[in-house]
Computed example of a mutant assay.
Amino acid sequence: MKNHLAVLAPMLLISATPNVLAASVVDLSVKGLITPVACTPSLSNNGLVDYGKISRQDLSVDKRTQLRDQMLDFSLQCNGPARFALIMRDNRDGSAIVNSEIYYGLNLDNSGNKIGLYSLNFDPASTVVDGWSQVYRTDSTTGGVAWSSSSSRSIPIGARSYLGFTDMAGSSAGPVAIQNLSSRVTLETVIAPTSELDLSADVQLDGSATLDVVYL
């Protein structure tokens, strides 16, 4: 009986060893593509929109107040044709009074109240690309895996959706290669009701966002 147990013990140990080893390793792959193409975006007035001093009397006590729209010239120049999309990152994340990827925050007042929000809108009709006769926009909520049918309607740029451009209407093939793009973009800003703000001191509008070029 003892001999029988002595033989079984090493057999069990050997058969279990491969399973232990298989569960103790994992593979890591690092991939990417370095491309010689580079695109440089720019905004007029260094991307600064200043509303100056706003009197509380010009704001609604119990409703949101939309300030006058502001225009900025946007341009993007590449050293060669490139497929790309645009996306914007909110540097004041969590401070917009509406929770949506197309709205960006104006930071908080002295009591931690949300001041308002803004959006940046692209209009294909105000956009010029290379020698195209007309520009259409297309967007992707899947990180570029699938694209919406291209359209001439304006759209706010999102924090989680890619915005690209094509020269074909109704195309879902995504953006096409572009070398030079220029557009006039519209900034829309909304201030929270004054009843929801601490106006015992000046309230500083302090919106900040980063517009990123994503190479496809």
Rank of each mutant, 00 (worst) to 15 (best):
N3L: 10
L5W: 10
L5F: 11
L8I: 05
A9G: 03
M11E: 01
P18N: 00
A23T: 13
D27E: 10
S29Y: 15
V30N: 07
L33Q: 06
I34K: 09
T35Q: 02
T35E: 08
V37D: 01
T40H: 05
T40L: 07
K53Y: 15
K53R: 13
K53D: 11
I54S: 07
S55I: 09
Q57A: 10
Q57H: 13
D58R: 08
D58E: 08
S60E: 12
S60I: 06
V61D: 14
K63I: 10
T65Q: 12
L67H: 00
D69L: 06
Q70K: 13
L72F: 04
F74A: 11
Q77C: 06
P81K: 15
A82V: 03
A82H: 07
A82R: 02
L86I: 04
I87P: 12
G94N: 09
V98T: 14
Y104L: 11
G105K: 03
N107W: 09
N113K: 09
K114P: 06
I115M: 11
L117E: 14
Y118E: 03
N121L: 13
A125K: 15
S133A: 15
Y136T: 04
G143H: 06
G144V: 06
P156L: 03
A159T: 11
R160N: 14
L163S: 00
L163N: 00
G164Q: 03
M168Y: 13
S171A: 05
S171R: 01
T189N: 07
T189A: 07
V190Y: 10
A192F: 03
P193M: 05
T194R: 04
L197C: 01
S200H: 04
A201P: 01
A201K: 10
D202P: 01
D206V: 03
S208V: 01
D212P: 00
